[in-house]
């Protein structure tokens, strides 16, 4: 099948797609946008967080065809320079595999709640699993970006 959608502001088309391909697979292997990560492919880790029509979702749980005609923003296209710099400055990045998902999820949190409390940060990022940092520096980064 054919999938046409807007990704990071550009129209992208994939031909000869197997109907079982997830949006995550399409982004990575069809469009070469490897920033969204394939850690669990069951919505449990948040590493593939993207915006789909402005809503934060796990790209692995969107069937490629469902993105047809829709607008996708990935970590490569999200306007989140402040969040990204805060993650580097705070030391919130180690192996970095969870980081792209956290950048998009943090961007989503801060656009809804510009000055989140500790509890709000934790609840908003509960779907983004990090195995390296123990989260302390991630919370620091979110606070840094919110200032």
């Amino acid at each position: 099948m054919r999938i046409a959608c807007t990704v990071n502001g550009h129209t992208r088309v994939a031909e000869n797609v197997w109907a079982g391909e997830s949006l995550l697979y399409v982004l990575r292997e069809r469009f070469g946008l490897y920033g969204s990560k394939n850690a669990c492919e069951q919505g449990e880790c948040g590493s593939c967080s993207v915006y789909l029509d402005g809503s934060l979702v796990c790209a692995c749980l969107v069937l490629g065809g469902q993105a047809n005609g829709r607008e996708v923003v990935t970590v490569e296209g999200v306007d989140a320079a402040g969040v990204q710099q805060a993650f580097v400055d705070a030391g919130a990045v180690q192996c970095g595999f969870c980081t792209p998902g956290l950048i998009v999820a943090t961007h989503d949190l801060l656009r809804r709640v510009p000055q989140p409390s500790d509890a709000q940060i934790r609840e908003a990022l509960a779907g983004n699993v990090c195995r390296c940092t123990g989260y302390a520096k991630i919370i620091e980064a979110v606070n840094m970006a919110a200032r």
């Binding site: 490897y34 920033g35 990935t74 970590v75 490569e76 710099q85 400055d89 030391g91 990045v93 970095g96």
Partner: peptide
């Protein structure tokens, strides 16, 4: 205290992990 040299590419999603190769 030194920031990661691979930090900028990791936060932008351009750092190539072993599953990102083609």
């Amino acid at each position: 205290s030194v920031q990661r040299v691979d930090g900028p590419s990791k936060v932008r999603g351009t750092f190539a992990y072993s599953s990102d190769l083609h």
